[in-house]
Write a protein that binds this DNA or RNA. Structure first.
Length: 577
RNA sequence: GCGGCUGUGGUCCAGUGGUUAUGACAUGAGCUUCCCAAGCUCGUAACCCGGGUUCGAAUCCCGGCAGCCGCACCA
């Protein structure tokens, strides 16, 4: 059994996660989170909120998971998110149809399925494996399609990313942020991709959870005001050049920007915050690196892109976060299709005063004379170079026809104007997190086995605040005189909103092991001494050491231990082994 | 999707064309003043699904589903 198997087996058995629809034989690409997994996921998401919603001040929104066709036409998912496939009629092998005609057509991407099929036919292309005849080319789109309302007139698509919700709400968000850049909006939610063959448990799912931030910035400056907070963080970077050499470099974020390894401060800032977040949920620093996309693997619009990758036992280096500079691609696409103005008016610090020469056609005269064409002619006059306006008769050509205008009908004035700012289309920096992959990584990186008196102890070393259960309350034995005070303590925890478990079953040692296996950081045991002096023991998951504290302090001590305000060895009197 | 391997209680695994399908661990009840998976008693719990062959199928055959590995795919 390798680590992947051990972790997934534990996860299934103890209620973290398991394949969906097991009752009916299952369906690949779908996973359920059980009682512990759902809590763990919520905690991972809540820490994400602490970083990006609270820490960065990005507003969290929630949009439908079904989108209408226009959204995905603009985003490019309708055309670019599908692959043209063809199948060999003999050996049933499936090929990317566009790959088969690469040597004939320069840009196969531009062709429709029918056109690709025609090229295949005309060039007698056959199955590369067996030489058999190829089937018609069909589009396989990775988006799930459905119908909105009865009939098929309004197709809907399950969103393949949460990002579009932020883009299409840009005007509302901009108003919310009182018309000023930069600002960010985030969404945590489900996305859907109809993967051809999902594998590896929760690593490639057809329905998965993303946490995405879209940070709208002024494209004229890619500096970040809080860059100094992160510039000394040292990260493992696997840049394009480093990948050529095959070795990861460790350097500070500031150095990476100075040397031009990370494109700019803002991108680097979010790489750094991502690093801090991943450590905060329990990703192992030694098994984490940031890898830059190579030019050919980057989405065509992206200016630079860095993935956070983690090392997993069976699967190798896996992408768990992507941080991309999407430039203004998305907003411009939506502008083009929706005709809405998605730019922002940015004020200059000081208005710029500028002299300008303006051409003013005499519309009183031009209007009656040229009627419907007057506007076009006036526009043409205004866009003419001043040097052409010197003659007594000015010749203007509009739509192939030439008109003669007397010079007297055109006045030229020099005016001084004040320019207070300009319209910019914001660029977007997008940190995009795969929550399910992060959750699996946290499980695997937390998983430890250690020998204890000839037995193997399995411990999930979750960071405090991540573990699905905060504390377990255990009567030493299942006796009324011990159970009653233990219940009292248990209730106190519940009243304070902490996740406590109560367990009387089996020997005390067995219960400690059970809690180790699900990562409960502390166990409180009520024993016979509790009845005498009102103290209980607190046992630390990682060291298995114990201290004694007064029963009435239990809630406070555990809370402070979890928050890090208190250190275990100083929280109470040590218990002799 | 293709090819190979696999599918037995919650978990891991044994096994056979024929009565009531092994075992371990886990789990429930109980006993034991029990602090690191101890012991004892009793219990719960399984042959992936569908079809075929057969007097009889969990076992053989076919199909499906799922998992693993390889290929392809991975915006």
């Amino acid at each position: 059994m390798d680590r992947y198997e051990q972790v997934t087996e534990l996860a299934r058995r103890r209620g973290f996660m398991w394949p969906s629809f097991e009752l009916y034989g299952g369906a690949a690409g779908f996973y359920d989170y059980g009682p512990l997994g759902a809590r763990l996921k919520r905690r991972i998401e809540d820490i994400w909120r602490r970083f990006f919603v609270i820490g960065e001040g990005f507003a969290e929104i929630e949009c439908p998971t079904i989108g209408i066709e226009e959204v995905f036409r603009a985003s490019g998912h309708l055309s670019g998110f599908s692959d043209p496939l063809t199948e060999c009629k003999e050996c049933k092998e499936i090929y990317r149809a566009d790959h088969l005609i690469k040597h004939i057509v320069e840009v196969p991407d531009a062709l429709s399925a029918e056109e690709i099929y025609r090229v295949i036919k005309e060039n007698d292309i056959t199955c590369p494996e067996c030489g058999g005849e190829l089937s018609e080319v069909y589009e396989f789109n990775l988006m799930f399609r459905t119908a909105i309302g009865p009939g098929n007139r309004h197709p809907g698509y399950l969103r393949p990313e949460t990002a579009q919700g932020m883009f299409i709400n840009f005007p509302r968000l901009l108003r919310y942020y009182r018309d000023s850049l930069p600002f960010g909006a985030v969404q945590i939610g489900r996305s859907y991709r109809n993967e051809i063959s999902p594998r590896q448990g929760v690593i490639r799912l057809r329905e998965f959870s993303q946490a995405e931030a879209e940070v709208f910035i002024d494209p004229r400056s890619k500096r970040h005001p809080r860059f100094s907070e992160v510039k000394d963080l040292r990260l493992r970077l696997y840049s394009r050049e480093a990948q050529e050499r095959g070795e990861v470099e460790e350097m500070s974020v500031g150095e990476a920007v100075e040397r031009g390894i990370i494109a700019h401060e803002i991108l680097a800032y979010f790489v750094a915050r991502t690093y801090e977040y991943l450590l905060a949920v329990g990703v192992d620093r030694e098994r984490l690196r940031f890898r830059q996309h190579k030019a050919d693997e980057m989405a065509h619009y992206a200016a630079d892109c860095w993935d956070a990758e983690v090392l997993l036992d069976r699967l190798g280096w896996i992408e768990i976060v992507g941080i991309a500079d999407r430039t203004d691609y998305d907003l411009r696409s939506h502008m083009a299709l929706s005709k809405a103005n998605l730019s922002v008016f940015v004020h200059y610090p000081e208005p710029i005063r500028r002299k300008r020469v303006v051409v003013k056609p005499d519309m009183k005269a031009l209007g009656p004379r040229f009627k419907g064409r007057a506007k076009a002619i006036a526009d043409a006059l205004q866009s003419m170079d001043l040097s052409n306006l010197k003659d007594d008769i000015i010749k203007v050509t509009v739509d192939g026809e030439t008109y003669e205008i007397e010079r007297s009908l055109v006045s030229v004035e020099e005016i001084e104007e004040e320019i207070r700012g300009e319209e910019v289309v914001p660029h977007v920096i997008e940190p995009s997190f795969g929550i399910d992959r992060i959750l699996y990584t946290v499980l695997e990186h937390s998983y430890h086995e250690e020998p204890v008196e000839g037995e193997t102890r399995v411990v999930l070393r979750f960071l405090p605040g991540i573990s699905p259960v905060d504390v377990a309350i255990l009567p030493l034995m299942d006796k009324d005189e011990l159970v009653e005070p233990a219940r009292r303590i248990f209730d106190a925890f519940r009243r304070c909103g902490m996740l406590a478990e109560f367990d009387t079953s089996g020997s005390i040692g067995r219960r400690y092991r059970r809690n180790d296996e699900i990562g409960t950081p502390y166990c409180i045991t009520v024993d016979y001494q509790t009845l005498e002096d009102g103290t209980v023991t607190v046992r630390d998951r990682d060291t298995m050491q114990q201290i004694r504290i007064g029963e009435e302090r239990a809630v406070d001590v555990i809370r402070d231990l979890l928050s890090g305000a208190l250190c275990f060895s100083e929280a109470g009197a040590p218990v002799k082994a």
